[in-house]
Write a protein that binds this DNA or RNA. Structure first.
Lengths: 266, 266
DNA sequence: ACCTGAACACCGTTCAAGT
DNA sequence: ACCTGAACACCGTTCAAGT
């Protein structure tokens, strides 16, 4: 049914036969500022992709638009990149490179480290709203994403949690961060498109919602909070959520310690 | 700068001038099984949309494909729906209608209710992987989504948590569920496309990863768990995460009670 | 080795007609 | 009131040529 040769499924650029970029420009020498060099190369293409995605969003991004930005014909890019999907996977890892991970030997409290990792992740997702949409699409195993995942794992382990609970707890924290950053980033992008501040956009939507009887019950539940300064509000909610997760981790850890202590006592 | 008339931003179908479907078919009578009735109507269109999205995914979905499915020309659909975006928003709320929410007067333990809401949400996201992608896109304030959000809020409040911590904790739980369901659904869809079971796909990817030296460190950290039966593994991780969140909520609640108790004692 | 042009098989949506 | 056809301005990608 399939072709005669056993072929691994192509699940990610990073799992291709040659995981490194198709070609890498090797400058003939260090001199002569290549600022406006006409030649393309993989890094220039990925950088331009990130720039365009930030400026105009994923919806408006196209290979033709990118080519125009690079002052080149649409098909030139295909010399360096196999498909649009591959290019987007490269762009995602370029964004992941902005994540700040603690150095390996640090002795900082695991709670502080976890908070730092969460915040750096959230900030990146808000800076690059297109990343959230693509993370769901791909396997996301580029080198920088992997470095971050590894650091997160190290921090979770250093909390003293038993090994079999690590993946669940990591999922709780980082899926939360991902979802939260997604909503924030998307909302910010919407506001930019509409030419409004976040507070203005929020009160416009609220004004419309308030005219509707269908939303009565939800309104009663939502109304208890100040609607001004939506960004500060979100920062507070984010902290509460992290506090909750950290408190939960401590409970799970203590529970496990008590149980293993009992075992030892018998 | 803008047009003379003050115009609210169009942020969602549900906030349109006429939030109800553009037209609703009003059957002339109850008789005569309309099974193969040639006429379109809003509900038939949304139902066909959901069916197509489930079967072929968001990427392959198009207005032309949908029209073909309905045995109609591409532009007929536009009589009932303004844009593709509006239609997708309707489809998202149709999926949200599948969420099971506890009836209002229930006296079940809030922990059980929270777990039920989380599970029903996760299952829906896995059944309809396209929902995750669209939730990030739109405001998601359709009637069924709102009913679910309201139920979730009620459960969180019944935990005894102080009001100002409710939004943060809700974000922790439901952004986690959303992210987790997203990954699961996307992975399942990938496997279906490749014609493999989830376990087969997983071990294929793992086999490729294992050949690579770049992944050494991450492998050491991941290797500690059994790779068989990936679905059972994910169910366990999901439970651990919920346990962690619930334990965290209890801690926050007790902390707040102690503080307000102190205040009362002074 | 690197880049181009023309072409293929698609999109969402508008608009003027049809019945 | 409901549906169609032709057209516009786009897509990603292939493929045969150019230099």
């Amino acid at each position: 049914m399939a072709s005669g040769r056993t072929r691994t499924i192509r699940a990610s650029v990073w799992l291709n036969d040659r995981p490194a970029p198709k070609r890498r420009a090797e400058h003939s020498g260090p001199g002569g500022g290549a600022e406006q060099s006409a030649g393309l190369d993989h890094d220039r293409i990925v950088a331009a992709t990130v720039r365009l995605l930030d400026a105009e969003g994923l919806t408006k991004f196209s290979m033709r638009r990118l080519a125009a930005e690079l002052g080149v014909t649409a098909m030139s890019v295909y010399w360096y990149v196999d498909t649009k999907d591959d290019l987007l996977e490269f762009a995602v890892d370029a964004a992941a490179a902005e994540l700040e991970v603690p150095e390996e030997g640090t002795d900082a409290d695991w709670r502080d480290q976890l908070r730092l990792l969460a915040v750096t992740n959230r900030d990146m997702l808000v800076r690059h709203p297109w990343v959230s949409r693509l993370i769901g699409e791909y396997l996301n195993i580029g080198p920088h994403a992997m470095a971050f995942a590894t650091a997160a794992q190290r921090v979770a382990i250093s909390s003293g949690l038993p090994m079999e609970q690590i993946p669940g707890v990591l999922a709780l924290v980082y899926q939360f961060v991902y979802g939260y950053g997604t909503i924030e980033g998307r909302f910010a992008a919407r506001c930019r498109e509409a030419g409004l501040t976040q507070d203005e956009y929020f009160s416009e939507v609220m004004a419309t919602v308030n005219e509707r009887p269908e939303f009565e019950e939800s309104k009663r539940l939502m109304d208890s909070r100040p609607s001004t300064d939506i960004e500060a509000m979100r920062a507070r909610d984010f902290e509460v959520a992290l506090d909750c997760a950290i408190a939960g981790i401590e409970v799970l850890r203590d529970r496990a310690r008590r149980e293993s202590g009992q075992d030892a006592g018998r």
